[in-house]
């Protein structure tokens, strides 16, 4: 007798259709995670009502929580499906694990959403180091280990969207750029070469949808799977934009 458990999934055939719930019985396996659950459902897509259905569409890639693809809302909390272990989820919610797509992005199908807007925000804040070119010009600037230790955690951002999903200010109506992009602006301002475009980034953060839109709910830092100190970045962005505005004021 194998143990089984229930999974409720909010499904949507395409961007123009309505959504509906489907429930599946899944055979339990030791150490199982949610991406395995979707794979097992795909192999035999039948609901608990014995209705044949189609495999659940979901984004996935690395399954190691470093690519950010499989982000979704599981048991009411936004996270990656690959690192969401069934044992822990059933402890949270013994009757059924509940899965739905992220709500801050357009649904493409089922659990697949279009997070294109997040990558566009990275363009806005010039999230890159503008180098002269790719010919050999020797090593980069020497960096104190303390600077590396400050930069590295910020540089682990997968653009997964957890922070913006949890952010009360982020929606397509407010135009708020969101914690991930703000933190990336801070990251590149930390870099000795990246600093050259510092004022461009601060200019963007000072403008509409910028730092002023942050409501300081601190949800972002709680849901970040990489434990990026997003609120520290936001605080730093607040100070830096103030100084930037003063510099603008005095014409410097």
């Amino acid at each position: 007798m194998s143990k089984s458990f229930k999974v409720r999934i909010l499904r949507q055939a395409d961007p123009n259709s309505g959504s509906h719930w489907e429930t599946f019985n899944v055979d339990y396996e030791d150490g199982m995670n949610m991406t395995t659950v979707f794979q097992r459902i795909a192999a035999d897509p039948v609901t608990t009502e014995k209705q044949p259905t189609v495999p659940v569409a979901f984004d996935s890639c690395c399954l190691e929580e470093v690519c950010g693809a499989c982000t979704m809302v599981i048991n009411g909390r936004v996270r990656q499906a690959c690192s969401a272990l069934v044992d822990a989820l059933l402890e949270e919610s013994p009757d059924a694990i509940e899965v739905r797509p992220m709500t801050k992005f357009p649904v493409v199908r089922d659990l697949v959403v279009d997070r294109h807007a997040m990558f566009e925000s990275l363009k806005c804040v010039k999230a890159w180091v503008h180098v002269d070119g790719y010919y050999d010009l020797g090593a980069g600037p020497r960096l104190a280990p303390q600077v590396q230790e400050e930069a590295y955690p910020l540089s682990r951002c997968m653009t997964c969207g957890c922070c913006v999903e949890a952010c009360p200010q982020f929606s397509d109506k407010t135009g708020f750029i969101g914690p991930a992009a703000i933190s990336q602006a801070i990251l590149f301002n930390l870099h000795p070469t990246g600093r050259v475009e510092r004022d461009d980034r601060l200019g963007v953060l000072t403008g509409p949808g910028g730092i002023a839109d942050c409501g300081n709910s601190q949800n972002c830092v709680k849901v970040c799977p990489k434990e990026i100190p997003l609120t520290d970045s936001i605080a730093k962005a607040g100070r830096d934009t103030t100084l930037y505005k003063l510099r603008q004021w005095f014409g410097r």
Binding site: V129, V131, G138, A139, G140, T193
Partner: peptide, 14 residues
């Protein structure tokens, strides 16, 4: 060296 210039946060010595 190129990756270093592009900002890859390589671990550093003291």
């Amino acid at each position: 060296d190129l990756l270093d210039r592009l900002g890859v946060p390589f671990n550093r010595t003291a």
